[in-house]
Amino acid sequence: MNIKILSRNASLFSTDALVQAAVKRKHNVQVIDPLNCDIVIEKKKPEIYYRGKKLDHVDAVIPRIGSSITFYGTAVVRQFEMMNVFTTIQSQALVDSRDKLRSLQILSKAGLGLPKTVFTNYSKDVSEVISHVGGAPLIIKLLEGTQGLGVVLAETKTAAESVLEAFNGLQARVIVQEYVKEAKGADIRVLIVDGQVVGAMKRQGKEGEFRSNLHRGGSASIIELSEEEENAAIKAAKALKLGVAGVDMLQSERGPLILEVNSSPGLEGIQIATGKDIAKSIIRFIERSV
C-alpha cells in the first residue's frame, strides 16, 4: 500500500517508528509536512499537491498533527477524506479531541467518569467557581495547553483566586478541575488502536511535581489494567470516534476518571515502558481497514 504520514518532523521517534513499521510490512511510505500541502477544491475533483507534486494513488494517511497546526492539519486530513483515502484519525474526531471542553462534554454524555470540572465566561465570582469543584486544592488548565504546559495546582483558596483572576484579566480560557488526592501525582496512559487496548503504562510525576507528563521528568512503568479501566479507555476512544487514541486517566476511589483523550499520542514512552510495538499495531489497523 501507499501510506502517507502527516508529520512536520520525520526524525521524531513516533514518526520514525511508524515509517519503520510500514517498511517492515512491505508498504510504500512517505512523511509529508501538512503545512507544505496545497488543497485544491473543485466540483467532484478534490486534489492535494505536496511541494508542487500532485498526490494520487494514496491508500491511507496517518495524521500526526501537532496542536499548533490543528486548523490547517485538519483541513488536509479532511481533503484526503474527500479523496476517499482511509485515515487512522478522522478530521472531525481530531477537532473534537483538541477542544478540551468539547471532548469533556462528549465523554460526560457517554457516561464516563471525569474529575468534576467547571468552565465559565471569565466569571468575576471566582469563589463560587472554586466551591463548585469542592474547594482547594484544585487544578486550573488552559484550554490550549499541551504536555503539561498551562496546568497549575492551586493548593489554597487564596492561591486559586489569584490565579483565576490573573487568567481572567488576560482573557485566557481555562477550566477548573477537582484535585484527586488519592492519585498521588500519577496517571495512566492507555493506547487504543481500532477499539482495542494495545498498551498501557502508569506515569508518575517526579518528586514535588503533580504533573506526570514524561516531558516534565515523569517516569513510566507497565501496568495491568483492571477491567473497569480497560472498558473506560475503550469507551472514551469510541465516544470521540478515534481510531488511534491515547487515553489519560486517574485512579480514584470512585473508579477511573478520564482526564484527556489524545489524538496524536507519543509512542516512545509507552513502547519503552511496555516493550510493545505500537507502531506495528497502527500499520496493521490500516491493513485491516483498506
Results as ranks from 00 to 15, higher is better:
Gln251Thr: 08
Val95Gly: 00
Tyr72His: 01
Leu267Phe: 14
Ser219Ala: 11
Ile89Cys: 13
Gly150Ser: 01
Gln105Trp: 11
Tyr179Phe: 11
Glu165Val: 03
Glu178Arg: 12
Val23Ser: 07
Tyr122Trp: 02
Ile223Thr: 07
Asp59Cys: 06
Val23Arg: 14
Val174Thr: 15
Glu207Arg: 01
Arg25Ser: 09
Gln177Lys: 13
Val126Glu: 03
Leu114Thr: 11
Val193Glu: 12
His215Val: 09
Leu112Trp: 13
Pro256Gln: 05
Val129Ile: 02
Phe167Tyr: 05
Leu250Phe: 03
Val176Gln: 12
Val180Asn: 13
Leu250Tyr: 10
Val244Asn: 03
Lys43Gly: 10
Asn28Ile: 01
Lys184Pro: 08
Lys4Asp: 00
Glu224Tyr: 00
Ala10His: 06
Ile106Phe: 10
Leu225Asp: 07
Val95Cys: 05
Val190Cys: 15
Gly208Lys: 04
Ala159Pro: 04
Ser131Asp: 08
Leu104Glu: 07
Gly217Phe: 10
Tyr49Phe: 13
Ala10Leu: 09
Asn231Asp: 06
His215Trp: 03
Ile278Phe: 14
Asn9Gln: 00
Gln20Met: 06
Pro256Asp: 05
Gly208Met: 12
Ser108Arg: 06
Ile175Glu: 08
Val23Asp: 11
Gly217Glu: 06
Ser131Phe: 09
Ala10Thr: 14
Thr117Leu: 14
Ser219Asp: 07
Ser289Leu: 03
Leu153Cys: 07
Lys157Ala: 05
Lys241Leu: 04
Val176Arg: 11
Pro34Asn: 08
Ile283Asn: 05
Lys181Phe: 06
Phe80Ser: 00
Gln147His: 11
Phe80Ala: 00
Asp59Gly: 12
His27Cys: 15
Leu214Ser: 10
Leu107Val: 02
Pro34Lys: 02
Ala245Cys: 02
Ala239Lys: 15
Gly52Ser: 10
Gly150Phe: 01
Ile48Ala: 07
Ile69Trp: 12
Leu107Met: 09
Arg78Leu: 09
Ile3Asp: 04
Asn9Arg: 03
Gln251Ser: 15
Gly255Asp: 14
Ser252Glu: 08
Arg254Pro: 00
His132Glu: 06
Gln147Cys: 12
Phe86Glu: 09
Val190Arg: 07
Val176Pro: 13
Gly73Trp: 02
Phe13His: 15
Thr156Ala: 02
Ile270Thr: 05
Ile272Leu: 02
Gln147Lys: 13
Gly199Ile: 14
Asn213Trp: 07
Ala110Glu: 12
Gln147Tyr: 10
Ile139Leu: 12
Tyr49Leu: 11
Leu138Ile: 02
Ala183Phe: 02
Glu230His: 00
Asp125Trp: 13
Leu112Asn: 10
Lys141Thr: 12
Arg203Met: 08
Lys45Arg: 06
Asp33Ile: 11
Ala22Gln: 12
Glu155Gly: 11
Ala22Phe: 15
Ser91Val: 08
Leu242Asp: 00
Thr74Pro: 01
Gly246Asp: 14
Leu143Arg: 15
Ser123Cys: 04
Gln177Arg: 07
Pro256Phe: 03
Lys181Asp: 13
Gly246Met: 04
Gly275His: 07
Arg254Leu: 13
